[in-house]
Structure formats: structure tokens, C-alpha cells
Write a protein that binds this DNA or RNA. Structure first.
Lengths: 228, 228
DNA sequence: AGCCGTCTGTGATCGTCATCACACACGGAC
DNA sequence: GTCCGTGTGTGATGACGATCACAGACGGCT
């Protein structure tokens, strides 16, 4: 069981933006999408494949009670939409740009051709899928066995790790996210998330502010994620 | 959101046993493992890749409270162990043979070489990973939003579909599995599972016996899986 | 037949988390 | 400045499911 990732930044080992741009960009078509723009909807039978060059795209699914669940957040260098292109079974999630985002788009057929023609692209695609599968499995394990408190600690750690301390002194990490988004990443309600954050705040591990959480004691957070 | 799969039988679109044998077997090494034999443990740094030729292999992870969770069951034609080979981050699950099983084994490096050299193998591997990622995402969605009752109905349907009615008349499906294994596939306890089965039995949808569940009314089960 | 281990079925209790329902704090628009 | 929208913090309640605790049923073994 490895650390769960939120995908804010490409995972270690993921292709670099240059690689994706080079590998997909040669055959694909580059464009910029606006915040909130939907690239495809869950269930659509479209099958084009996207590479994220800059910006961020959120992959969400509609849960049972109308709640929405964030499956992944794709950043620069990430490939998405490839699952539908490979199995032809329709989009497994909805893709929404979270900010102005530069993407490369390629038809499903062209993607298959490109993979066939370029072993390095094939390997990059395999690595990307392997990483996403590992994360998904981690999340299955976490979701089905761990209480919300542990999940919050785990995700905060992950976010903190990806946002290298802009506040200077190196022992403090600032995570810019509101409680609602954090809750969706956990598959929990905002209220449950807020209560866990309150506990952590009282324990002196973090401080919270509007759309921002500051991690003061990383080790304590690790301990919370582990034993609980 | 598509149907959750338990992987008892290769998913539609997965490479056929012949294909795997041909694609991996040419470079790999074939052998037979006994029931209960462990091919690798969660966390191991081994990285060989396996193809299942005949029999079944269970991929399990240890949950938080020592409970174990079945991530997948690989049947003939399925590839497994490729995630660790691709990302080099250790085994994400433990693989245990459920019955005498014939496998093809290939070192991680040989696997990468094979993928590089053979575009068709690369595509087959991509399709396999895409299918597994889709299932994993479905399961995340199901696990984090659906009550146990729905999950039981869903998994029973899936199992029924894969075990074409050996009882002759075509309107009855016999699922050979005990409550403990069923519960592990759901990520629920045996007791919760047994209670849902009791409800379905009382509703006349299924009958239950030792290590066997008979589905009499598939449509009713579909309805249970949907609305609940 | 008799025994024992596995599997099943169910009650009771209790903890976690979702849901509903507010109050307050902050920031931008006017 | 005031208003309003968004984000936060927290109480009360209830439902779902985990856990503990048994009893009974079936099948294999000797």
C-alpha cells in the first residue's frame, strides 16, 4: 500500500510535459480550454485522447446520491481519455478544466496508430496507466477500510508533499484547497472533513484559513495517517 | 458507470489465452503452480510479469484491520504483475493461485523489451490495463457511494453472467461461492453480506445453500442493483 | 453411525458518518 | 459603509454497517 495521490502534479515516473507534447503533439491538435469547459461527459461514446500540456483537468464521476467524486486531477504531462479509446466502451468519467488549460487532442484511432508506431509512446502510456491503476487500487483499499480521519491525513500529506513550502522556512507546508474540494477527493462530506480538520487544528498539527490549510507538524500527520 | 467485474473470466476485449501464450510465452517461462501457492507478496520488490494460461489467481491486499480485500481474480488470458514491472515500485498486491494454474512468467526487463519490440503486445497490455483501471474506478465509485445491498446485487449479477446456467433451463444461474469470499469481494463483512442474501431470499429472488447461491429472478436482481 | 470443522443465519450493541440545520467570518461589489 | 455570496465551524439526529456472540446445518472422515 503506497501513498494515495491526488494527481495535482504529475506522479513520479510520469512522462514529462515535453515528452507528451512531443509524442502526442506530433499527430494531435493543440488548443486551450477555459475554466469549467467540459472535454467529455461520463458515458459519452467519444474516444479521443488528451494530453495535458499546462493547467489542470478534473476527472469526476457522478455518485449515487448526486454527489460527485473526483477520480483524478490531471496536470502537465498527464494523459487522459485513453481508457475509452482503448476499450471503446464510452467515457468512464467527465473531464472538466479547472483553470485555463492547454491540451493536445488526438482521435482514438490516431492514438492507437501512434502507439503501434512508437514503442516509446506505448511505454509512456503503459506507465501512465500502471500509475493510475495503482492509485485506484490504493484508493479502493483506503476507501473500504479506512475511516475519514485517516483519509484526510493521507490526502493532506500528499498535497503538502506536492506543494513545496512557499512560506520559506521549510518546516511548513501550505495547501491551497477549500474543504468542499478536499471532501470530494476523499469521498466524504464537507462536514465530516471539517470535523477532522478541527481535531487536527486542536492537536496543533495544522492551522486552517479560508481555502488554505497549513501543515505545521508533518510527522504528527504521518502518525495520524498510520495509526489513527 | 459500467458493471463491476470480479474477473472470474477474462473481460470482453481481453486477449485470448492463445494470444497471451503466444505473445508472452515466446520469451517467458511456463510452469504450473498449486492451489494456495503465492506468486508474489504485496510490497515485494520483485518485478516479473505473469500471464495466466489456465486456472485462476487471486490478487489480494491486506486491509487496515487485517481484513483482506480481493482486488481481482485473474483467469485465462489475463496479464498480472505488470504494474510493478512498469513503475518499479514494488508489488501492489499479493497473488495467490486459487486452483492448479498454468502461468507464463517473464522478467520485468524482458517484459519491457517485449513490449518495445511488439506493438501488438503493447496494445494488448494497454487494453488489459485500461480494463482494469475502468473496473477499479467503478469500484471506487461503488464502494464510496453504494450501500452493501446494492453491491451484493451487482456482484451476484456479475458472477451469474459469467457462470452460464449449468442447470439447464436457462432462467436460473448457479453461483458457486461461499459468503466469506463474496464478502471479501465486496469489501464488507460476512455478516452484512449474509443479511442482504437473506433479504433477497425472502423476496424470492435467490435461494442459498452451502457455498452456492442460485439466482432465480435476474430482473429483480437488476432492479435491486439499480434503485435499492 | 458419530464427530468435527466449515459454513450459514441472526440477534444485540455501538461507532462512524451522512444528513439537516444553523451561526459566523471574510471579501468583493456597489 | 452595507449587502451578499462563499467558505467555515459545529450541534443534533438517525441510518448503516462493523463487531461480538451464538445456534444450527451440512458434509467429510474414521
Amino acid at each position: 500500500m503506497t501513498q494515495m495521490s491526488t494527481g495535482i502534479v504529475p506522479a513520479a515516473g510520469a512522462p514529462s510535459p515535453h515528452t507528451v507534447a512531443a509524442l502526442l503533439g506530433a499527430r494531435g491538435h493543440r488548443r486551450t480550454v477555459m475554466t469549467g469547459e467540459v472535454l467529455f461527459h461520463e458515458g459519452d461514446m467519444s474516444n479521443s485522447v488528451f494530453g495535458c500540456v499546462s493547467g489542470r483537468v478534473r476527472l469526476i464521476v457522478a455518485g449515487a446520491a448526486g454527489r460527485e467524486l473526483v477520480l483524478a486531477v490531471c496536470g502537465p504531462g498527464d494523459i487522459f481519455g485513453d481508457v475509452a479509446a482503448l476499450d471503446g466502451r464510452g467515457r468512464s468519467a467527465t473531464a472538466v478544466a479547472m483553470e485555463p488549460t492547454e491540451i493536445v487532442e488526438l482521435s482514438g484511432a490516431d492514438y492507437i496508430d501512434a502507439v503501434r508506431a512508437d514503442p516509446e509512446l506505448a511505454l509512456a502510456a503503459l506507465r501512465s496507466l500502471a500509475g493510475r491503476l495503482r492509485r485506484a487500487n490504493d484508493r479502493i483499499c483506503a476507501g473500504e477500510t479506512e475511516p475519514v480521519a485517516k483519509r484526510v491525513a493521507r490526502v493532506l500529506l500528499d498535497l503538502a508533499q506536492r506543494c513545496p513550502s512557499p512560506s520559506g522556512d521549510g518546516s511548513v507546508w501550505v495547501v491551497s484547497i477549500n474543504q468542499t474540494d478536499l471532501a470530494e477527493m476523499l469521498g466524504a462530506t464537507r462536514e465530516a472533513t471539517a470535523r477532522v480538520l478541527a481535531d487536527l487544528r486542536r492537536a496543533g498539527v495544522i492551522t486552517t484559513a479560508r481555502s488554505r490549510t497549513v501543515v505545521h507538524d508533518r510527522d504528527a500527520l504521518v502518525a495520524h495517517a498510520r495509526r489513527c
